[in-house]
Design a protein around this nucleic acid. Structure first.
Lengths: 201, 201
DNA sequence: AACGTATATGTACGTTTGTACAGTGCAAAC
DNA sequence: GTTTGCACTGTACAAACGTACATATACGTT
């Protein structure tokens, strides 16, 4: 919680992990080599083998750390929605605001996120992080639908998360500048309206 | 006519592309090297440089071809749903049947699909294929909702595709054996019921 | 039979890669 | 003041890599 007032001395290791993730997102996993990471982090080559036993470990560690950071960020952001008597509109705006940066400035973080999921299909060590990430979101959305007195918050949450995932994945490849207004907001409106009326089997 | 040695009915190049995609899905893009591809395809190393100008070209070509194959497969499968007077149940079953293999035998194809999308975020050459894939699905689902007389087939289709994408991405990392019955089918039921009543803004 | 061309392959070369490791500096312990 | 231990780094090297290219083969044309 209490943030150190030292701006400089961030541990080397964490810095390397950050650079690695950025590299994964911007240039692909191929680009993650000891030398490239060292160059971007402005540390000597030896550092990369000092802090990590192998390239594999460096990469996996970076992905895990990143995934957990995203979960933490989500929960932190969640705390900013106190919402005693939540309105539907407020939640829609909240979600839109939450997703908006992912389509712009934080675009590369989204790329990293879904690259992580793809990689988790192949690497058992990443399965847990992927699962944690899903569950964090489910919890958030489930809570949300519960607060809105939706009849079936659990399924509702799973459906909404899937939809948001899908939208982000689509935007990965072919970003649409008008996506927020043209698609996301209407879609969310529809989801919330329906969830509240409880129509459907 | 074949002298004696013509066991290769399929052109070499296509075979290399298939092997490349399989490698991407099963071992990651890292694993795609000339030597590894040649080994798996059981062709001499020289072949890989003969058919492709560079590793880059081989990889991109493989991803593009794969993407287009998936689109073709989708439309082919679509033809098997003639459905003059479609019932809701029939479409649900159709979609479930269509997605089911992706979670089992064809799991690695799904991995390849979303790896392709991630890669398209970084490589402009892949943007078009990604877009084509999206549009093919939109067309299919839009048609579907239109046939069912849903009030807003366009938005409906976009929402459903996003949801399906999302579900598949989730299953990538942490496959749930009971996913079809426990999540997908109920979710689809709900989507279709709602779309037909037309509730929502 | 001789030739020409497209297809195909084995080998070799310069680079990049992961990683080991001997060495350096430096602060605390003695 | 010397020793010790540890955080750190520069260098070296075998292995793997992408790619060029000279050579070989197959086959239609002449």
């Amino acid at each position: 919680m209490g943030r150190r007032r030292r701006p400089r001395p961030r541990p080397r290791r964490e810095h390397l992990l950050e650079v690695t993730i950025e590299l994964v997102a911007r240039e692909g996993i191929d680009a993650v080599t000891h030398r490239r990471v060292a160059e971007l982090a402005r540390v000597p080559l030896g550092s990369t083998t000092y802090y990590f036993a192998s390239r594999e470990e460096m990469l996996v560690e970076a992905l895990k750390t990143f995934g957990r950071q995203e979960v933490a960020a989500l929960q932190e952001r969640l705390a900013e929605l106190p919402a005693r008597r939540p309105s539907r509109k407020r939640y829609i705006d909240g979600l839109v605001d939450f997703l908006a940066p992912q389509l712009g400035d934080d675009h590369w973080r989204t790329v990293a996120q879904y690259t992580l999921l793809c990689e988790a299909a192949r690497r058992p060590e990443l399965e847990l992080v992927a699962r944690e990430w899903n569950q964090a979101w489910w919890a958030v959305l489930e809570e949300l639908f519960r607060a809105l007195r939706a009849p079936d918050p659990v399924l509702e949450a799973r459906m909404l998360l899937a939809m948001l995932d899908g939208f982000l994945v689509e935007q990965l490849a072919a970003p649409d500048p008008d996506f927020l207004a043209a698609v996301l907001r209407p879609a969310l409106r529809r989801v919330f309206t329906r969830a509240l009326t409880g129509s459907g089997s």
